[in-house]
Design a protein around this nucleic acid. Sequence first.
DNA 1: CGATGCGGGGACG
DNA 2: CGTCCCCGCATCG
Length: 473
Amino acid sequence: MKLTWDINDSKLPQEPKHFDDFQEWPDDYVQFIYSSEEKNAQRHLSGWAMRNTNNHNCQILKKSCLGVVVCARNCTLPEGIKLQLRPAICDKARQKQQKKICPNCNSTLELIPCRGHSGYPVTNFWRLDGKAIFFQAKGVHDHPRPESKSETEARRSAVKKQMPSSHLSQKKQLLELEMGRYHESDGHFNNIHHLPCLEGSEKFSVVSDTSFPIPAQPYPSFLSTDPYKATYDSASFQANMESPFQKCPNPRIYVPRPTCGYEFAVPGYVSSSSYPALYKDLTNTPMEADPIIRNDPQYSVSSLNAHDKSLDGFSKHHGLKQFMGKTDYGDKSDYVQIQASSNHPYYSGDYPCRYASPSTPAASALQTVITTTTKVSYQAYKPSVVKYSDNVCDTKTLLNCSHLAENHSGTFYPGLKVQGDWCGVKPTLLYEHDPTSTKSECFEAVDTYQYGPNLGNNYVEHEGQIFRFENGE
DNA sequence: CGATGCGGGGACG
DNA sequence: CGTCCCCGCATCG
């Protein structure tokens, strides 16, 4: 169906039978047709950092991928995670961004350009035609996913709020605290409960790990209430869910060798504001082994925004589950594509070198990644070899954790309130509560990115994940 | 401050 | 020409 048209065709399919659900992380040579009502599509949004490219064709909007910003030393954060920041779209801002230092090792940050399309950046094309928005992507991202736009925005908003009161010393303290806690909590959902909200309410967003297949989940009915936001979230949500499966093939691309560890990709972004984001590995197995960081989108949990996640959590709480189901068709298409792409010749070469760190021992079961709003996203991986089916298995394993998650919900949730907007919808909400005010401080002084776990977010995410599992079951 | 779009221009093939 | 990229301008949140 999707190959029946090309973005450059003089005439595109009229009145498509159905519209695709918004895909936050399109990858590979894929095409989608969104409803002109879809806000994310209207805004030409993408999880990838895409910048406008002049193609001298006002009918077709072309955007090219900026890649991802990582630590020049490719250092591994305490938990085996790596920074994967979203490149600023604005050239000027990007240059500034690259002058900042890695919060973990103080080395410089590095922009990994995207060369997934015949050596050129992956390109995305958008074209509005009647009631449909045609989307076409060309190329396979040869780099890890950066933090999603929503995560970035959440981080910023959080920063703004907190900045006023933040102090460096406090920030540092917070950071330390988080780290310590982080360690303590290794890997268990339960731990999450224990985690204090370091950041302040605002900053952290938790990212769940999307590595496993996520069954369709019901969406909160309220989503429908706010079409716009709801759609957005749902879209991203779906994307996240789908991505894991779809992209499984890609893992190889990023990480050539099969490893069994968990990988965590944590984009922590802390530029001026630092939010420590705490993330935990939900899996039972801690990441003690060195987790290899992979860039695989699939694995990256980051794809899910805190919002999304929170959304999930909410949905659960609310008992709205219907929504999830809808993601399906998108998945299918993706899945197919993925398979096709699995063999991509691209990247495999460089990427590994750049990104691949020592492989980590395989972790076992579940992996959850929690990210701060800021953007730390953890990615847990399974062995690179993992396939969809494998993921499924994991999922099952993970299911065990569901109860944990629920506990979380009970525990934390209350604390986290959903204020006017949905957490899922708006990142800011997440931040608003911060149980521990102290943490919220961000360090600005150095412009480093911090990462830390966020309780609220974590909570949400966990739930979301749990949810997923349940559904899957 | 940045994200986005737009569009002129230059460099290449 | 077509493809890419750079740059400035403008709008908007």
